[in-house]
Write a protein that binds this DNA or RNA. Structure first.
Lengths: 238, 238
DNA sequence: TTTAACGGTGTACAAAATACACTATTAAAA
DNA sequence: TTTTAATAGTGTATTTTGTACACCGTTAAA
């Protein structure tokens, strides 16, 4: 079959906004760009879509190159197609965001790429329109996490209620009453209380929980309430 | 500045899922495809992204070609990038959905393209992966309309409460108690009651309302509740 | 044995969602 | 002219959900 011979072909890229949580602060992973233009400046991990791979495959490949991780939460965010977004050549870029357990991330691999975690409050200037991509990703996460349990993807398999609350407070830059928080969270039925305690951050120790995977998958698309007053928090600026 | 010489360039298309409401049923606008492959089969309105236009510009251009309408609600839906989605040549397509007032749509223009409205319950087979695009768009509309006032975009400037309720019932394939519906809707403060009545569908006549544009823009991103029990309705199948 | 730091829980009140049924209007028919 | 039929419009009681708020428990270290 012959091709669409008269049409212009364009460069198509994928850029990944990779989020991690260190127990205190929400962060994104950036690299020093290794080629022109903008060589040496901080950038999202990205690459061109190859002719034999889908967008999802491309984003997973790129994520694996930077973090060594596979099978993590990765979601298409938005496709950025302004004509001059890359000054070198017209390039359309589909942005994905990833939520990873920062502790599973292997530092050694990052060093190959000069990768570094930056708190969202203090990210360096990014190349092209990547600042807008990060803003879009932040908004999407805040929006989605108010209704759906995506933030669990940032935590290790075992986590405590105080850790979880820190995460929500960090994402929304707010404070939450811990009595109401635990009621709300436990009411979703998404978590299983373990008998083991985390004794690293208090004398008394906090019980570990893990996800109830069955309920997690079943309720992932439901409208749940993880955050009081989400409207007032969605626009929050770091 | 030289180009990214070693990279493969791909075809990039835009496809539009155009929704309309005729007072009774939610419909999408399809055309008979005029070129190979799949010439003569029903298809979404689409086209290739030109080198001098953004994705948003491309989708607006395509929408205008089919409907003659400009300035309507148009939102990027998702980018479909499977390797073999177009058998003729690797093509990545960014899908947009549009919500239009079906009465503003000019029939004459549609005839140039052999366009036709189809109820969502009875759409013909579509080419390539466009069935998946339509499914994704339906899900997105149901999801978003449960929380945000997007369905008003499908109605004329003046509309009645019974019309609005018909629209919601049609989108979610359900019935809603009219007392609770009007309370919920009016509580949003999005509508202004007019003194004029629509006498075409009942002896008594139903009051017209119009959008309070100030509140509409202000609250568009807020989490509102337009639908009782949305979880149970999101998967509804036509 | 005292202290300091964090973890865990319950109740009263307010707000929101839900279930539910009758009256109003008016053109057309009897 | 009266009746009928079809659609529009409204209110209340109950249940459910969300919110505000304060004290005791645990334990390692001082």
């Amino acid at each position: 079959m012959q091709k669409y011979s008269k049409q212009t072909r364009l460069l198509l890229a994928v850029d990944c906004i990779i989020f991690g949580f260190d127990g205190d602060t929400l962060k994104i992973l950036l690299i020093k760009r290794g080629f022109q233009p903008e060589k040496g400046n901080w950038s999202l991990m990205g690459g061109f879509v190859q002719v034999d791979e889908s967008l999802d495959q491309a984003s997973n490949r790129i994520l694996k190159q930077l973090t060594g991780l596979e099978g993590v939460y990765l979601e298409q965010l938005y496709t950025f197609g302004d004509v001059n977004r890359d000054p070198k050549e017209r390039t359309v870029s589909t942005a994905y965001f990833a939520l990873i357990d920062i502790h599973k991330y292997e530092t050694q691999l990052s060093n190959d790429y000069h990768a570094e975690w930056f708190p969202l409050k203090r990210t360096p200037k990014l190349i092209f329109d990547q600042q807008e991509m990060v803003e879009t990703a932040k908004k999407r996460i805040r929006y989605k996490a108010a209704i759906h349990p995506i933030l669990f993807e940032l935590l290790p398999g075992k986590f405590t209620l105080p850790q979880l609350q820190m995460l929500y407070e960090s994402v929304y830059n707010t404070t939450i009453d811990k009595r109401n928080f635990s009621k709300r969270i436990l009411a979703t039925g998404l978590m299983i209380k373990l008998t083991e305690k985390d004794k690293t951050s208090s004398r008394r120790g906090a019980f570990y929980y893990q996800l109830n995977m069955k309920n997690y998958y079943a309720k992932f698309q439901s409208f749940l309430n993880f955050i009081p007053n989400p409207d007032s928090l969605l626009q929050a600026i770091y």
